[in-house]
Nucleic acid binder design. Structure first.
Ligand SMILES: [Zn+2]
Ligand SMILES: [Zn+2]
Ligand SMILES: [Zn+2]
Ligand SMILES: [Zn+2]
Lengths: 172, 172
DNA sequence: ACCACTGGCGTTACTTAATAACAGACAGGC
DNA sequence: GCCTGTCTGTTATTAAGTAACGCCAGTGGT
């Protein structure tokens, strides 16, 4: 049986981990990825990425906009959407379609699949990378003559912590 | 190996099938489902469902609104969103989150999973119902202590027809 | 017949999400 | 220095979805 890798390691592990480290390593990896791929991680883009990594909960574009607005005069929708577009293309953040929100990617590789577990109680999101799942999808598709280009998988439910603590909040 | 069922049978089969039949049987099933579950398929809801079934391509809420506006004076966003909410709850239509759009469900059962193949060339959507896929997801989740409530799976790519005809349109 | 309660719908107004289009700034290559 | 492309600022607009209020028809009890 294939081992499931949970890329956002701490996400469902402990509520109060050293999230500063998460942010720091994420930014370091991002810098690295951009250097090797020749993309420009400008201060604005870097800052937006940092804000996205503010937590392991998905962030809304207009929340980012508000945060940006606090620290610089000029901040309009295109400001944040352009940065997010770049970050998505670079594989540094993912968009969660079912939530209209964004999360940082713990393992930036361009064009990799996105499989997410979303806890509707605490709002936390964990990113999976299960090859068996992908290949099962490829199987289904192939049998119908369908060529897969991009997969969006967003699984809502309750994480271990929230099951224990009986939380039932509505981060739907 | 499990057999993959493609619930919207004609969707990727022939471009010009007898879609009138699709609509008719879909509406008949819907009536039936509502009767047995004690839900009220009012004229408005029925009409919206019919419009959703206008094709096998997902329909946007505001397109529906425009269509409704042609045939009745009174049509505001809540009109169509309320109907769509009802139809979703009844399992008669699905929302495709990655497209902000809606498609009719060929096999109305309340609360069943939604797995979609979306052709970015012709816009057509096919609904899968692969239990093996679901159980694989359940496996992954369980290993992380995650309890699954709802799964959203939206696979983009190219259908058999569009591969043959070399179409590359952008119904992204 | 009367009343109260409900669910469905019309209506207005608003929030949130995202994009278009144009202009200035700024860096790197020549 | 100057051209060129990319990044960003700015304004405006479209698309998507929701809140809140009130009307009315149907229902069910008294
Ligand atoms: Zn963290
Ligand atoms: Zn949780
Ligand atoms: Zn059809
Ligand atoms: Zn196609």
């Amino acid at each position: 049986m294939n081992q499931v890798r949970e890329t956002v390691l701490k996400s469902f592990a402990t509520a109060a981990h050293d999230h500063g480290r998460c942010i720091k390593t994420a930014l370091a990896k991002a810098e690295q990825a951009c250097v090797t791929s020749g993309k420009r991680l400008t201060p604005l883009r870097r800052r937006v990425l940092e804000l996205v990594w503010g937590s392991h909960e998905p962030v809304k574009a207009y929340e980012l906009l508000a945060l940006l607005g606090q620290e610089r005069e000029q901040a309009a929708p295109p400001t944040v959407y352009r940065a997010l577009d770049f970050l998505q293309d670079a594989g540094l953040v993912h968009r969660i379609a079912s939530l209209n929100a964004f999360v940082g990617c713990g393992e930036p590789r361009e064009g990799h699949v996105s499989q997410f577990l979303i806890c509707t109680a605490c709002g936390t999101v964990a990113e999976l990378a299960d090859p068996a799942l992908s290949s099962r999808i490829a199987d289904c598709a192939e049998r119908l003559g369908f060529r897969v280009a991009r997969e969006t998988m967003e699984i809502e439910g309750t994480c271990r912590n929230c099951q224990k603590t009986g939380k039932a909040g509505d981060h739907a």
